[in-house]
Each structure stands twice: as C-alpha cells, then as structure tokens.
Amino acid sequence: MPSEFQITFEGKAIAAREGQSVAAALVAAGERCLRVDEAGNPKGAVCGIGFCWECRCSIDGVPDIRACMTQVRPGMIVRRQRGLDGCSER
C-alpha cells in the first residue's frame, strides 16, 4: 500500500495515510459530521475507541462500520448515513 493516498467522503477527495482510521482521516480534513441520526441530529466521532458507535458510516457499500475502528485503504468510498438509510449496496 502506498503511504499516502486518497479516499472519498460524500464524493469529496480526502487525503489519507496508511495506518490512519477513517475517523482520523476525516477529522484531519475538517469533516466532523459523520452521520445524521433518525431525529436529524448531526453526529461525529466521540469515544474514538469503538464503544459508542456514533461514528458509524457506510464504507464501500457496507453500512454501520465504525469509522474509528477501520483503517483507510486507497480508493475507499465513505458515505454519511442519514437516519435508517445505511447507503447499503448489498
């Protein structure tokens, strides 16, 4: 894996480094709203270590993946889930 590459978030290119979590790469790029819950509340990474499940995103078509527990990969497609729509491609 190259040490620096790009992932996309909501169609936008985001700089990433091998070994970073998806949450870290997004926060570094200034993207703090990772999800919108069923009540319309914007949510971001909170606990950073995988127990709160607030940072869950659709990653490469699979819904509800914890951004803080998932390492970036070149070309990874991350989408912001809104409500129950997990942006699933399954």
Binding site: R32, C33, G44, A45, V46, C47, G48, I49, C68
Partner: peptide, 8 residues
C-alpha cells in the same frame, strides 16, 4: 460533532 472523550 466536535465533542469527544479526551482519551479518544
């Protein structure tokens, strides 16, 4: 978003 646990 922006409120985090310190350890996180």
């Amino acid at each position: 978003p922006g409120v985090m646990f310190a350890g996180g």
